[in-house]
Design a protein around this nucleic acid. Sequence first.
DNA 1: CGAAAATTTGACATGACTCAACTGGAGTGG
DNA 2: CCACTCCAGTTGAGTCATGTCAAATTTTCG
Lengths: 196, 196
Amino acid sequence: MSDLLIRNLNRFVTLTSEENDTVLSLFRPRNFRRHQFIQQEGEVARYETFLLSGLTRTYEIDEKGAEHIVLFGTEDWWVGDLYSFLTGLPSTYAIDCLEDTQTMQVSKDDLEELYVRVPKLERHFRIMIQKAYITSTRRITSSLRKSAAERYMDFIRTYPSLEQRIPNHQIASFLGITPQSLSRIRAKGNTRKTGK
Amino acid sequence: MSDLLIRNLNRFVTLTSEENDTVLSLFRPRNFRRHQFIQQEGEVARYETFLLSGLTRTYEIDEKGAEHIVLFGTEDWWVGDLYSFLTGLPSTYAIDCLEDTQTMQVSKDDLEELYVRVPKLERHFRIMIQKAYITSTRRITSSLRKSAAERYMDFIRTYPSLEQRIPNHQIASFLGITPQSLSRIRAKGNTRKTGK
DNA sequence: CGAAAATTTGACATGACTCAACTGGAGTGG
DNA sequence: CCACTCCAGTTGAGTCATGTCAAATTTTCG
């Protein structure tokens, strides 16, 4: 199962089998059930979490108590609050599971040790973050210029598999719109009859 | 002047003076005048560009021909289209100068060589991109949840010095609103008299 | 100086929000 | 198995923020 982690880390660099073992010795498996928190708001992010299976949501809570989903995560993804992880300051994000979820976690100290023992991983994570950064900048453009309907279409095109696993009101939260608006957008899209 | 580049690269790691010299041997100074393009839309991004002075804008042009500013850059910032730079595909971004601008540029090959000759720089750029990524994710949240007025206030709070150097319609483009809307937002904010 | 660009203002249109009510399905306990 | 509740989803009516189109005014800079 932790193969997935090894494959992930060997995507941009090639590790020897000893290096792979070093990786495995520093990551710890941890499983979560549906509704369980991987990380609570206000707490320092002590781990970066690699997802082996399942589904998570990372979200913020605003002054009015409303949840705003920032990211869904599923197998072969990393989740965590990099800011809190790096600075040691309390996180403003919460992460919980929409499905039972298997993970491998690494602490900050262990990750630093890993960078020392397997310097190639600096490269891996640089490239990985570069890609995440590119995706992120594109999402800014899209969130600033596109209508809610376009953003929804983009979402189901980009994550067709997730769209079926995630309730609509959560998708609405991710898109930054109300569930009502999403419902109307969907109603408009489905011009075809219900097949009755 | 290129001190600024050396200081930038020594922010998260410490380079020896030979390593600094290696850096300098692989970067090339290049100066641009106001209105000149650092990079044109449709062309492959062959360089990453470090800004020593001046002011740039990175923007996209949509189907209707409207410009959308993605990023302003000024001294001690990096600009370029990482996606195009990494993939070799034509860039969808254009970068031009709002002021005369001095830069240091590095080509893809030279940067790869630099990573080989000064591996510490993998770490530097990993950390740098991590920070950029964090900023970027926060901007997504803000663009999805905040009103235009709030985003404008955030902008002038975050970049007080830029706000004075950049024409309003460019700020509007960056915020994803029309110049008319920005004008109204400003009018509302300035309840105090003009001091006449 | 004079043309072009930037900014402001007004009138109106529209997309998305809020509040509220209703529907339908999933689980629960009697 | 039914009555009940809870929650997601839908729908309607009214409101508000922002966009669009147009014109007047001011500023910039070539």
